[in-house]
Design a protein around this nucleic acid. Structure first.
Lengths: 214, 214
DNA sequence: CGAAGTTCGTGAAATATATCACAGTCCAAA
DNA sequence: TTTGGACTGTGATATATTTCACGAACTTCG
């Protein structure tokens, strides 16, 4: 194990490796080399080894990585023994879709509270989560020890809601609103700007391809 | 204007700048400096100037950038005079939420076709888009000149569907399925793995904060 | 008009990240 | 055991991206 700062991209890839070895484990594959794992994840063998190398030595020269062990190690590193409570703010189309999305809980992410300003939505239930008014956010977030949040409110409300979340003690925001949030140092935001991502992809194939003039 | 390869991150930020100058334009602010624009987007002034510098000289020493001109230039650079047809595959919770999401069309992204394998969904309409069977995908994608796609099918089907999309001529995939897609060189994929993003955020605040042991 | 103060544009430096390449380790087979 | 082949772990190298820093351009004001 070395002490260098670990790139965020490395952590993100670790989850991909974990996903892969979990699959391998299911089908009783016992061993995998960095190059095979790289092939399955569209990464280079060196990248795989380097990423894992930040956390210790998991491999065996000559044969590769023991799938079961690597899976356990990754789970340990990534805190898969933990469960995270998540607050959802903004229960529109996207928010309600995410509330009913079972993928989160499979990964130890439990949406335990949901909030909206729309009085017509308050009191409704999605997947056992009752929608509460934003005014209750602070109390509930503190009470349920929530440090992760998903923000899917309209752009114009996003900053205000983010401020409330942060004030309440939330440390991470997965931000679906197309705005640049201003947050203090200790809070991490990941922007999920769907239009922007799609447009950015489009940029790189434009010319070669077929957007239409308006 | 220089000829160096332009980072993808730069392009992505250009959309952010455009969003910002569009706001500024609405409220009749005529001029903005790189440092002010940086502050509004949580980026450094140098980053702003460098990004814009890839595409020419838009600024005026001493006063900054003319908002209207910069807006027009960015729109030009980013192909905002074009409209993109988008295919949506997989109309589950998430897919249908995205179909009814108006944010795309505001950005020149029109979802003009939607597909699913579930016979119960086929024929239903969301926002004027009729859900078609995957078997029709190839014909429709070619016919409507679609080069962008959103993939929100279950993980196990994702690669097969991606292959079909690519075969049909799609060039970009916004991939919500938690799998590493294998695609040819000329196709661009952006993974939107919501759980992974949230978990990656969580990793960096863990310890300082409060995931619970299972 | 000239001086003081802004702000841009951009090479150069710094930092971050990914790839290379190979010594050393391990396995399998005879 | 010994040999050949497979594979890891990791410094060194290469590439990519961001930040620095400063000359030149422009604006404003007296």
């Amino acid at each position: 194990m070395n002490n260098k700062k670990i790139p965020e991209a490395t952590i993100s890839r670790l989850f991909v490796y974990l996903r892969e070895v979990t699959e391998l484990d299911k089908v009783n594959i016992r061993t995998i080399s960095s190059s095979d794992l790289g092939e399955r994840t569209n990464l280079s063998d060196a990248q795989v080894r380097k990423d894992l190398g930040y956390f210790g030595q998991f491999g065996v020269s000559g044969s590769g990585y023991a799938v079961g062990e690597l899976k356990q190690s990754l789970e340990k590193i990534l805190g898969k023994d933990k469960t995270w409570n998540v607050a959802m703010v903004g229960v529109g189309h996207l928010g309600s879709a995410l509330l009913t999305y079972s993928g989160f809980s499979r990964h130890g992410l439990e949406i335990v509270a949901a909030f909206d300003t729309d009085i017509r939505k308050i009191g409704k239930t999605f997947e056992n989560v009752v929608i509460k008014p934003i005014d209750d956010l602070s109390k509930i977030v503190a009470g349920k020890n929530i440090s992760l949040s998903i923000l899917s409110v309209p752009a114009r409300e996003a900053q205000d809601v983010a401020d409330i979340l942060i004030e309440a003690g939330v440390k991470c925001i997965l931000n679906f609103a197309p705005v640049s949030l201003n947050v203090p140092e200790h809070v991490k935001v990941k922007d999920m700007d769907l239009s922007r991502e799609l447009e950015t992809l489009a940029y790189f194939v434009a010319g070669k391809t077929n957007g239409k003039n308006k």
